[in-house]
Write a protein that binds this DNA or RNA. Sequence first.
RNA 1: GGCCCCAUCGUCUAGUCAGGUCCAGGACACCAGGUUUUCAUCCUGGGAACAGGGGUUCGAAUCCCCUUGGGGUCACCA
Length: 577
Amino acid sequence: MTTSAARTRVGRWRPGMIRPMCPTPGAEVVRTRFAPSPSGHLHVGGARTALFNWAFAKHHGGVFMLRIEDTDQRRSSEAAGLAFLADLAWLGIDWDEGPEFEGRGGGSAGPYFQSQRLDLYAREIERLIAGGHAYRAFETPDELEAKRQAARTANVPYRYDRAALAVSDRDAATWLSEGRPHVVRLRVPDDREIVVQDQVLGEVRIPPGELDDFVIRKADGFPTYHFAVVVDDEAMGVTHVLRAQEHLYNTPRHVLLQDALGYRRPVYGHLPLIFNADGSKMSKRDRDRALRAAVRDRGVTGARSIPAELFRTWLSENERQLDLDSAVALAEELGVELPEINVDDFRRAGYLPGVLVNYLSLLGWSPGGDIEKFSMSFLVERFSLDRIGRSNARFDREKLKAFNLDAIQGMGSGSFEAALRGHAAAFHPAFLARLDDAGFRLFATANHERCRTLEEPFRLCQFLVIADDAIVYGADRAVRKALGADPETLVRAAHDALASAASWDAESIAAALALCAAQHAEGKLGKVAQPIRVAVTGTTVSPPIDVTLVMLGRASTLARLRRFLEHLPAITQQATA
RNA sequence: GGCCCCAUCGUCUAGUCAGGUCCAGGACACCAGGUUUUCAUCCUGGGAACAGGGGUUCGAAUCCCCUUGGGGUCACCA
């Protein structure tokens, strides 16, 4: 494969030019698709691919489809499920055709599961065989592996040797009638250069002889990915294929197949890949890797949230993955932030769907100029293939977080509260049980200006859902500093002042504490607030002290202050140790 | 290793296709001050890049070539 010397982007269109696929307006409706294999939750990389296909279709008033590529019987039997449908819906990426899900999907080009389209593939394969474009091959996987091995040893590139073509018709017929397992291979012309016009990368040329006769039907009768994709894209009228660059080398195969089958050729665009901040591949194993590192780093030997047996095997077997709930629990226990890789992880971590979409669209696309914060409708309005970048991008969680903060700060108090309530219902029901409506509203206001994610308020305010007699006091330097020289006097004074406060609201509490500060701390509120904060939360961080106490309620506050005083000798000893 | 793709601050990028307005703009991160009862915010300022080498041109981040570096792919996975 070589790139043309002048990287002419033939077919790339610019404003004012006529689009190659739309010679006259309305002549052809743009149809794009996202075609994942059923593998549980949606990966951010997949989300970006889906987003671009969606945005492109919407920009042209076209149709965005979803198709499930479940032609791997082995993998599909693992019942990974279709959780990614909910992930797409959460992001606001709605599909016009595809599997039905909460009002989305349906359509006349279905079924949208490849495992239900086997008849079509069988018909098309027979057509290829009859036309001499494809042939049966009876080698076993072991035989092929031996040939590959031999090629490796000889240090030559492996290509299928077409041994099946040397088999006599009589033998082949006999084997076929015996029911001998076989695959079907495409007969790849080896005298033809293949040229692909990629809308992102430009012209890509593949010299003759680079591709071998690849398998299009497996021994189990299922089509391979290459075959199913090509047949379905034609049958479903797909006009544009946007997919990750890892598929670039598949495109010549698909072009060959289209030619052999007499199909039209969709427009292709290959998107740059997304990597972790450290340049490693984003993988679902990242989560377990981070947890193992933390466990080893701290010399932890067990976990409350995981059975000992499981913990041991998980720790020693690097391939082993914890289920999501266990991983989250362990992370909480260790105080580790889990690396997010699936869309669902980001939701759990408290990111707004619009922010994720915004950030994701910037990975490989740009509206140009200095614009980088925008809505989905802006994306639809401005999206175009000629603004897609060609080099791989790294996922920067800090920038995402900064965007999320900005979006949260920009929300009205009502919608922020609603969003926080939704997050609580999904992930922190204990807070809804603990706080009444007014309490939750206060919780929302107290956290609105200080949180970067919807998750942070719940972490910051753990003290709300811990029993009064279960507060654990920290023993670090921050706690020591917060307690100051004489916490006993201050906390005792605060207790008495708060006990006799006229009412339990922020104003009265602030007034009572200001008085304490005036009497015992030279008027410095911080000197009073910090010991109290430690006393009622166990930590040095919480919303402003008056709000913290209002949320907690008078009874809990006083009980915690008393308990703190009882435990004070042990606490100070521990903190100075 | 073969084949292919890519290359602007630490990161995402604008600028590249139509060479001059770019001693390169923005954002995140970072550093230094400031505001703040903790934390997070917030405000002000700062450092920070055209991978290297050859060409073409009056002129190159922009066009060409080479080198280097990064990535993808080489399955009866998708």
